[in-house]
Amino acid sequence: MALLEVKNLQARVEEKDILRGLNLTVNPGEVHAIMGPNGSGKSTLSYVLAGKSDYEVTGGSATLEGEDLLELEPDERAARGLFLAFQYPIEIPGVASMTFLRTAVNAVRKKRGDEELSTPDFLRLVREKAKELNIDQNMLKRPVNVGFSGGEKKRNEILQMAMLEPKMCVLDETDSGLDIDALKIVADGVNRLRAKNRGFLVITHYQRLLDHIVPDVVHVMAKGKIVRTGGPELAHELEAKGYAAYDNAA
C-alpha cells in the first residue's frame, strides 16, 4: 500500500485557489523531492497535509496508509505518523523546549499505544539526538525556538522529527538558511532516519540538498499541480534551466 497518496487535491485560502488537482504517491522507503517556483503552492500542500485550519480543502483526497488524513485533527495526524518540518518554525515564548518535546513525545507515544518515556529515558534520548544534530544542550534550556538563529530553528525541526519517529516526513525548505556545515548535519540527520517503512517529501529550491539526500523521485510543481515527474537528474536540469518552461504549463 502507498504510504502517502494524494489524489486530485484542491485547496483554497481566503477565496483563492492554490492547489488545483494535485496527484502524488509516496511509497514506503521512498524519498520524493518537490521543486517549483515561489508561490506555486508547495508550503500550502504541506500545511494541508498537516491540517492547518486556514486552508479549505475543496476537492480530492489525501491518505496515509490508506487512512483519510483530511478528516483528522492535526495532532491525530502527527500521532498517525505525519511530520511537517516547517519552512518558518515559530517561536513559542514561555514554553520550555524540554517541556514541549516531552509533552509531544509522550502524547504521540500514548496515542500509538506505547509507554510514556521516563524522565531519564527521555533526557537520554534528547541528549543523543541533539548531539547527532550538533544542537547545544543550552539551547534546549530556552523556550521553543526563542532566540534561535534561522539555522538553529531548522535543526530543531529535525530534532523534533527524530524524537517523534514519524512514518511520513514532509520537509519544507529545511535547507534554506543553513550554512554549508549545517546543511551536511541536517542531511545526515535525515539520512539516518531513512528506513524501508518511512517516506520523505523534501521541498527545496536547490539541487545542493539533493546531493546529500538523494531522492528517488523529483517532482516539479507549478500553479498548484505536479507538472513533471522524473529521477534525480531532473533536479540538475532545473538547476541549469530554471522554471521558465513550466510557468505556463499549468
Binding site: 516547517f86 514561555g94 502524547a107 496515542k111
Partner: peptide, 21 residues
C-alpha cells in the same frame, strides 16, 4: 497549530500556552 502538529492534543496545547502566558 505548531504544538498540535507535534502531536499535542488541543486542550493540552492550549494549557501549555495559557500556562506560559
Amino acid at each position: 497549530f505548531y504544538l498540535r502538529a507535534r502531536g499535542i492534543p488541543k486542550k493540552e496545547a492550549e494549557s501549555l500556552l495559557i500556562q506560559s502566558f
